[in-house]
Write a protein that binds this DNA or RNA. Structure first.
Lengths: 225, 225
DNA sequence: AGTCTTTTTTACAAAATCTTTACACCTGAT
DNA sequence: ATCAGGTGTAAAGATTTTGTAAAAAAGACT
């Protein structure tokens, strides 16, 4: 089996070196770019399985690079950013980042998130049904089962759960969810989201007070797992 | 036993080659078309057991080809597509696609879905009757029994129940049902559907107020079970 | 034509769903 | 401790969707 390629876009040599050593020792093939521009070129020439993108790049904002990449690149992009930049994180997720990690990060966590993101690359290929924990979602039948028992969801609840399921493990921002489910112009109606998340939790969680599927990421959005 | 014929309609030669090799090694006979038009001709000349149709064709939209095919071809059509948009999927399934797979796909999954689709061909060809709960539908005799008692249905009621029975467990959208029963151009006449669903329920449900066969999926359509 | 059956309209009642409001809760900062 | 910001929950409206009955129209048959 071929090694999976990871592209690192980061201007700090010591970070690149650290990532290189860590990732290669876990059997990934690492390619590196020092600037955003260089990263775009390398990704285009030889699309990697996953991209690690630092937001604080010297030549142009990492956000711009992310947008450019997302115009054609549909595999995982994990954002690396310095702490205390919640706004940056929200913007990045809105622009299609798969996940984010604050520097400094723990390698175990990075590796876990990378595995999850790469798994998504593969699972997003299959469309007609998916199994997540005790949930079974069949998009052709438009049905949701929990432990083989058919759940009765309203159209909006179904759409919301679908969106979550298609982005398993990934943080979706309030804005993004609202745009996807209710359409542009509803991005400030976060209350809708709270109401429907509560309703969904009542239906799919064993214990809605301690949700294990729909996780709140305070100040950012929700993560489904 | 003769090999089963599969028709591939796809403009990308490398995809066709890949499919050809894969399918032939699993004992299918493969025929190929590069354009939608050519595919229609080949299917008409020699109807295959299953069609693999790419949505992104150069000469006309795959959706159009699908519609054309479905006017007379009633065996399995599996859609292949790079797109992953919900809208495309819904449209394709509404237009009569048997199943849907996003590229790139895993061969094991493709083969599994093909087997399932071909199994459906046979069951829908040979099976002349079906038993669902207390209902017995005999398509050759064109008769419906409930607990061995012959029901008297009008032509439209019979068509509607047939459609439901052939899609047991699946949600059928209002639009789809209207198109199938009344034809294109009636897709906005949802009131017809309400009237006939009510009539059917009176005849087949034990308690029409609490239907157990024809389930309403508010805002979407109906599910038969 | 006239009767019978079936389909299409119409009108309104009933149910389900969505939206809004109100308030409780939790967490971290002052 | 108090406060503010974000979050969770229940429940009251408002709105949309669905169900039902029954009349009108359209065929089908004798």
């Amino acid at each position: 089996m071929n090694k999976q390629e990871i592209l690192i876009i980061d201007d700090e040599p010591q970070i690149r070196k650290l990532l290189e050593i860590t990732l290669e020792s876990h059997d990934y093939k690492v390619i590196q770019a020092e600037t955003g521009k260089q990263g775009l070129l390398m990704a285009a020439n030889h699309p990697p399985e996953l991209i690690l993108l630092d937001l604080g790049l010297p030549d142009s904002s990492g956000h711009e690079i992310l947008k450019e990449l997302r115009q054609w690149y549909n595999k995982a992009i994990i954002i690396l950013s310095v702490q205390n930049s919640e706004h940056d994180i929200v913007t990045a997720l809105d622009n299609g980042a798969t996940d984010y990690l604050s520097k400094p990060f723990r390698t175990a966590e990075l590796l876990a998130r990378m595995r999850s993101a790469i798994r998504q690359n593969q699972s997003s290929n299959t469309v007609s049904c998916i199994e997540i924990g005790d949930l079974h979602i069949d998009w052709t039948a438009r049905s949701i089962r929990k432990n083989d028992e058919l759940l009765k969801l309203t159209a909006t609840e179904y759409n919301l759960l679908s969106l979550f399921a298609k982005n398993e493990g990934r943080v979706l921002t309030h804005q993004y969810i609202l745009k996807e489910i209710w359409g542009v112009g509803y991005q400030t109606e976060t209350q809708y989201l709270r109401v429907f998340v509560a309703q969904l939790r009542k239906k799919i969680e064993d214990n809605p007070n301690q949700p294990r599927h729909i996780i709140t990421e305070s100040g950012v959005g929700y993560r489904f797992q």
